[in-house]
Amino acid sequence: MMLFVLITVSYLMGSLSGARIAQRIFQTGDPTKLGSGNPGATNMYRVSGWKAALFTLLFDIFKAVIPLWGSYFLHIQPIELGFIAIACCLGHIFPIYYKFKGGKAVATAFGALLPIGLELGGLLILTWAIIAYKFKYSSLASIVAVSLAPLYVYWLKPKYTFAVIMLTILILIRHLPNIKRLLAGQEPKIHERRKG
């Protein structure tokens, strides 16, 4: 029963959209209709600037940190934490408050991983930053970082490895369109604007 409640709360929190809230606070354009159409921090940066992007990023991270950290200190088993993390990310991807039309859940997945340890968070940020700086693709940086997450976790806290693999698979599946565009040379870079 406790697991069901935590999964439900995590999904409902994940369904809150940092980009859509930022749109109201900063009076910006609709991120689902501008740029890449993705309600995430990178697209908010493209269409609305760094303030809206930073708000979106932090909101989408901490909406996952809260339920996962709470579950972590309730001594929930690692595999069950994986399901709670997935529920939060599914909330971001298929938000009940926004007709189930959400984003990629990269920041939310990062927030879900933070309770494992700040060392993991640092490694993921460093990986993302290096790839983003070198290649200028946010999606590629996210794909590389999330793909390496299970390896980092196995090195730091191996008991959470399988749970992180579950989360990694979900994020990679969500990025399949980005992978196809990257291979075709059609993926927009971080600073580029793109319609629809």
Rank of each mutant, 00 (worst) to 15 (best):
Y97H: 13
Y97E: 08
Y97C: 06
K99C: 05
F100C: 08
F100P: 02
F100R: 14
F100W: 15
K101V: 14
K101M: 10
K101N: 11
K101C: 03
G102D: 08
G103W: 13
G103I: 09
G103R: 08
K104Q: 13
K104T: 13
K104S: 09
A105R: 10
T108K: 09
T108V: 14
G111A: 06
G111Q: 03
A112K: 00
A112H: 00
L113V: 08
L113F: 12
L114P: 00
L114F: 11
L114D: 00
L114G: 00
P115D: 06
I116F: 10
G117H: 06
G117Y: 07
G117K: 05
E119R: 13
E119H: 11
L120R: 02
L120K: 04
G121S: 10
G122M: 14
L123N: 02
L123A: 03
L123R: 01
L124T: 01
L124V: 11
I125N: 03
I125D: 00
L126P: 01
T127G: 12
T127S: 15
W128P: 02
W128C: 03
I130E: 06
I131Q: 03
I131N: 07
A132P: 01
A132K: 01
Y133T: 15
Y133V: 11
K134D: 01
K134Q: 14
F135N: 12
F135M: 09
K136A: 03
Y137D: 01
Y137N: 02
Y137S: 09
Y137L: 02
Y137K: 08
S139G: 10
S139E: 10
L140H: 04
A141K: 00
A141N: 04
S142G: 15
S142F: 00
I143S: 09
V144F: 04
V144G: 12
A145D: 05
A145N: 08
V146M: 15
S147N: 09
L148H: 03
L148F: 10
L148Y: 00
A149G: 08
A149H: 04
P150K: 04
P150R: 02
L151N: 01
Y152K: 07
V153L: 10
Y154I: 12
Y154R: 01
W155R: 05
L156F: 12
L156W: 02
L156G: 02
P158I: 12
P158N: 14
K159V: 15
Y160V: 09
Y160K: 05
T161V: 13
T161K: 01
F162Q: 02
F162V: 10
A163W: 03
A163C: 08
V164C: 07
I165Y: 03
I165A: 07
M166H: 01
L167P: 01
T168C: 15
T168Q: 10
T168E: 12
T168H: 00
T168L: 06
L170F: 04
I171V: 15
I171K: 05
L172S: 09
L172W: 11
L172A: 09
I173G: 12
I173H: 09
R174I: 04
H175T: 06
H175D: 08
L176V: 14
L176Y: 14
P177V: 05
P177H: 09
P177C: 10
K180E: 15
K180W: 11
R181A: 14
L182D: 10
L183W: 15
A184G: 13
A184H: 14
G185V: 06
G185D: 13
G185Y: 12
Q186P: 04
Q186H: 13
Q186V: 02
Q186D: 15
E187F: 02
